[in-house]
Simulated scan of single mutants.
Amino acid sequence: MTQPDTPSDLPTAPRRPTLALHDVVELTRQICDVESVSGNERELADLVEGVLRPLRHLDVTRDGDTVVARTRWGRERRVVLAGHLDTVPVAGNLPVRVVGEGGGRELWGRGTVDMKGGTAIFLALAAEVGATEGHEPDHDLTWVFYDHEEVASDLNGLGRVLRNSPDLLAGDFAVLGEPTSGSVEGGCKGTLRVDVVTHGVAAHSARAWTGHNAIHDAAEVLSRLAAYEPQDLVVDGLEYRECLNAVGITGGIAGNVVPDRCVVTVNYRFAPSRSVEDAVAHVREVFEGFEVTVTDAAPGARPGLDTGVARDFVRAILAATGAAEPTAKQGWTDVARFSALGVPAVNFGPGDPLLAHKDDEHVVAAEIELCHRALRVWLTGEDA
Rank of each mutant, 00 (worst) to 15 (best):
P54H: 02
Q30F: 09
A356T: 00
L168H: 04
E178Q: 15
G331P: 03
L94P: 11
P353M: 02
V98D: 11
A356Y: 00
G308Y: 05
T112V: 03
S223L: 13
L176R: 03
P303W: 08
N267R: 13
V283L: 02
A324V: 14
V175M: 08
F270S: 04
V60M: 06
C188H: 11
R62F: 11
L94D: 11
P14R: 11
L169I: 06
E76W: 05
A219K: 07
T87E: 00
V276D: 05
A91H: 14
R160Y: 03
A301W: 10
A120Q: 05
P95S: 06
T321R: 10
E43F: 06
L162H: 03
G157I: 00
N164R: 15
G134K: 06
A319E: 15
E149V: 03
A227F: 10
V68G: 06
G111T: 09
L155K: 13
L155S: 02
A13D: 14
D138I: 07
T333E: 07
K329I: 03
A124L: 00
T180N: 08
V247L: 06
I368T: 02
A328P: 07
T6M: 13
D359Q: 14
E185F: 08
G130V: 11
R105H: 05
P95Q: 12
R241Y: 02
E178L: 09
V294R: 13
K358S: 10
L85P: 11
H22V: 05
H372L: 00
T327K: 13
D236G: 08
T380W: 11
V286G: 07
V266R: 02
G157R: 03
V363T: 14
E35I: 13
P54V: 01
V294Y: 12
P230Q: 03
N213E: 00
K358M: 07
V235I: 14
V96I: 15
A206W: 05
F173P: 10
L222A: 01
E41C: 05
A227C: 06
N156E: 04
G159E: 09
D306I: 06
F122D: 12
V99T: 12
A281C: 05
V68H: 05
V292H: 01
A297T: 13
N256M: 07
L155T: 07
L168W: 15
H139C: 10
P95R: 08
V264Q: 02
H148N: 13
E285K: 12
T18E: 15
N164S: 14
V377C: 06
E149R: 01
V129F: 01
Y268T: 01
N156T: 09
V292Y: 01
A316V: 07
T210K: 13
G182R: 00
V309Q: 09
D217W: 05
V24E: 02
A152C: 04
D334K: 08
D59C: 06
D306Q: 09
S8Y: 09
I215G: 02
V234C: 08
P179E: 00
P326N: 07
L169A: 05
N40L: 08
A45D: 01
G74C: 13
A202F: 04
D33C: 06
H204E: 06
V235E: 12
H84T: 01
V194A: 13
E101V: 12
P166H: 04
V60K: 01
E325N: 09
A208K: 12
L10Q: 15
V257T: 13
L379E: 00
G64W: 07
V88H: 09
R207F: 12
R224N: 02
A174M: 10
V221A: 11
N256D: 14
E382W: 08
D195R: 14
P344G: 09
L52P: 04
L58Y: 12
